[in-house]
C-alpha cells in the first residue's frame, strides 16, 4: 500500500513538472491549430495589450468603463471629452464579472474614477469566464496573484494551460508592440476600439432563441464589485449597451435580467435596448454598435446619466 501511494504521489509530482516543460515546448513548436487547450491570445482582437499598458499610465478619470467588447466598442472617450467628462475604457473581450472584479481590485485606486459604468451583456453573467480569462492571461504585462486566483475560479483546463504558458511567456517577454490598426479596428487612446465598417453585415440572418441563466460564480463576483465600489464611495452604474434588435429579442427571458439588475442595492441600472432608437443600421454585426451608433448611444447615455456634465 505504502509503495503504491508513494509511487502514485511521485508520479504526479514528476508529471506536473514534466507537463509544464512539455506544454511550453509543445506550444512553441506546434502550430496554433494543434493547441486545442492552450489559447494564447497575445495581441488578438480587442487591443487589450495596448489598453492595459495605457491603464498603467492612467490616473484620475471621471468615468471608468468596464465590461465586454460592448464596452470597448461602445464608450468613446472622445465623445465624453466633448461633454467635459474624462473616461477610460477598460473593457475586454467577453469580460465577465470574474475578470471585472480582478480589474477593479487592480486599477481602481490607480485610476481613481468618480463613476464606474459596467456593461451587463447577458452572456457575461452566464458564461464560465474562460474566454476573457485567456485574453487577460495572454495580454497582461505580468502574471500576478490575482490572475492565479482567476484561473482557480474559472477552473477549466484551457484556463490552467494558458495561465502556465502565459507565465512562461512573461518570463521570456519579447515586447512585440501591438499595432494601433488591426484589420478594420483602430485603437483610440483611452481604451476605445473603432470599427471602420459601418453596415450591418449580419442583418437578416436567423438568430436562434437564447435563454439567459445566471452563473452563481459570476453573481458572486458582481456582488463583490458592488461592495468594493460602495466602500470606496464610487457611483456604480450598470448598463445594457444596445445590441442589434433581432439579437436582443432572441433572449427569451430578458426581463428576468432586468428584474435582477434593477433589484441590486448600491447600483443604478439602465437598459438602453428598450429605447427603440437603435435600429439595425446602428450596428456592424448582431452585437456591436458602429460609429454612428456609438455617437448616438454615448450622447444619450451622457445626457441621461450625467446631465450637464454633472457626475
Amino acid at each position: 500500500m505504502k509503495k503504491f501511494l508513494l509511487k502514485a504521489v511521485s508520479f504526479f509530482a514528476i508529471f506536473i513538472i514534466a507537463y509544464v516543460v512539455c506544454l511550453f515546448c509543445f506550444c512553441n513548436i506546434m502550430p496554433k491549430k494543434l493547441q486545442k487547450n492552450v489559447l494564447y491570445l497575445k495581441n488578438s482582437t480587442g487591443h487589450l495589450s495596448t489598453r492595459l499598458a495605457e491603464a498603467d499610465t492612467c490616473s484620475q478619470v471621471d468615468v471608468l468603463a468596464l465590461g465586454s467588447s460592448h464596452t470597448y466598442r461602445g464608450f468613446d472617450p472622445r465623445i465624453f471629452r466633448r461633454h467635459g467628462i474624462s473616461l477610460f475604457n477598460l473593457g475586454s473581450s467577453a469580460q465577465s464579472p470574474i475578470q471585472t472584479e480582478y480589474l477593479v481590485k487592480k486599477y481602481i485606486d490607480k485610476i481613481h474614477p468618480r463613476v464606474v459604468v459596467f456593461d451587463m451583456y447577458y452572456t457575461i453573467l452566464q458564461c464560465d469566464g474562460t474566454e476573457s480569462a485567456l485574453d487577460l492571461f495572454s495580454n497582461s504585462p505580468g502574471i500576478d496573484k490575482g490572475l492565479f486566483e482567476m484561473a482557480l475560479k474559472v477552473n477549466t483546463i484551457p484556463a490552467y494551460n494558458t495561465f502556465v504558458y502565459s507565465w512562461f511567456k512573461t518570463l521570456n517577454r519579447q515586447n512585440i508592440k501591438e499595432p494601433a490598426i488591426k484589420n478594420n479596428d483602430t485603437y483610440i487612446p483611452g481604451g476605445f476600439v473603432e470599427r471602420t465598417i459601418n453596415n450591418n453585415q449580419y442583418h437578416g440572418q436567423h438568430i436562434a432563441p437564447a435563454h439567459f441563466e445566471i452563473n452563481e460564480l459570476q453573481l458572486k463576483s458582481l456582488q463583490n464589485i458592488v461592495k468594493i465600489l460602495k466602500e470606496k464611495n464610487i457611483r456604480l452604474i450598470l448598463v445594457q449597451t444596445p445590441y442589434a434588435p433581432d439579437s436582443y429579442r432572441s433572449v427569451v427571458n430578458r426581463d428576468s435580467l432586468d428584474r435582477y439588475l434593477s433589484s441590486l442595492k448600491d447600483a443604478e441600472y439602465y437598459n438602453f435596448n428598450d429605447t427603440n432608437i437603435f435600429k439595425n443600421d446602428y450596428f456592424f454585426d448582431f452585437s456591436h454598435l458602429n460609429s454612428k451608433g456609438v455617437e448616438v448611444y454615448d450622447s444619450i447615455l451622457i445626457n441621461k446619466l450625467f446631465p450637464g456634465g454633472h457626475l
Partner: peptide, 18 residues
C-alpha cells in the same frame, strides 16, 4: 512505460474536452 502514461495524460490535457 511511464513515458507512455505521461503521453496519455498529456494528450488528455492538451486535446480533451472538459
Amino acid at each position: 512505460r511511464y513515458s507512455t502514461y505521461f503521453l496519455i495524460f498529456f494528450i488528455i490535457l492538451m486535446f480533451g474536452s472538459f
